[in-house]
Design a protein around this nucleic acid. Structure first.
Lengths: 144, 144
DNA sequence: TGTTAGCCTAGTGTGTCAATAGGAAATGGA
DNA sequence: TCCATTTCCTATTGACACACTAGGCTAACA
């Protein structure tokens, strides 16, 4: 029951882009430095976000990445679901789940359903904008 | 972000014992039949529950397993945490976590903390007794 | 003393995780 | 036009966990 590095890094990556998008787009090289994650690994993660249309890329020198929309338009859940796949705690709650033959007599699914709702509830309650605000409130002056 | 079969089976196993504990203790062979899980795999899972003191074993012929306490005294979370290890969504929230060097500037941890509370909240809200009730309400007559 | 149960440890195939590696393609500047 | 920079794409790899299976041992009842 763990969120993988891919999911956690994706969130930090999106936050890093949100916070450093100035005149120039954000280069992965710089994000990699700031976040202590390899460029190569970030490339893989961001390709998922580009394909989803969450991030726009600009190639060549002075290229980089920009958010496609405003930070407030991305919930944490949207980002995690994009890179982690489904965030449901059991497979039978996934959209494309093959239905389980025990489903009719299954009572544990009630727990999993409520758990799923609780998880998605928290993850969709916050947006990138919230993270940006928190980061600005807290200790960001130290980093500059 | 998935609960493993070990966790899911443990819950079904405890529920099965709770529902079939009569004069004779519950044999794994029977649970295996009812739940469509191999005896060998159930043995491994139940050994974790015996060690935790959640289940008492009786050896020899007419042996089997009994719950050590009443169904209402086991929350779903207790059972899952026992076999799955920690149910925290990120490693840095575990009891014995080595502290992360980025922790002071980390804002994503606020999300993970709230997520963790939501998860434990749901899992500790229900007990085995609830599952027993649900099972009795619903379709249990079909199985008999 | 044999059968029936639980107890214990080892092994195994499969897959995912968490990266690293290498090169191709685009683009702006000298 | 060439070069440096940056994104894009695919392959590979080591480690580890997952989900079991297998085999033998021990306790207890009849």
């Amino acid at each position: 029951m763990k969120i993988s590095t891919k999911g956690r890094y994706a969130l930090r990556l999106m936050l890093d882009i949100a916070m450093n998008d100035t005149v120039e787009p954000v280069r992965l090289k710089d994000t990699a430095m700031r976040q202590s994650i390899s460029v190569k690994y970030l490339e893989q993660i961001i390709s998922l976000l580009v394909r989803a249309g969450y991030v726009k890329s600009i190639r060549g020198p002075q290229g980089g990445y920009r958010l496609a929309k405003k930070p407030a338009e991305y919930t944490v859940g949207m980002i995690l679901r994009q890179v982690e796949g489904n965030m449901a705690p059991v497979a039978c709650l996934e959209n494309d789940a093959v239905d389980c033959e025990r489903q009719s007599e299954c009572v544990t699914i009630r727990i999993w359903k409520e758990l799923d709702e609780a998880i998605q509830g928290v993850l969709d309650k916050y947006t990138l904008a919230d993270l940006v605000n928190w980061q600005e409130e807290q200790g960001n002056e130290y980093i500059i």
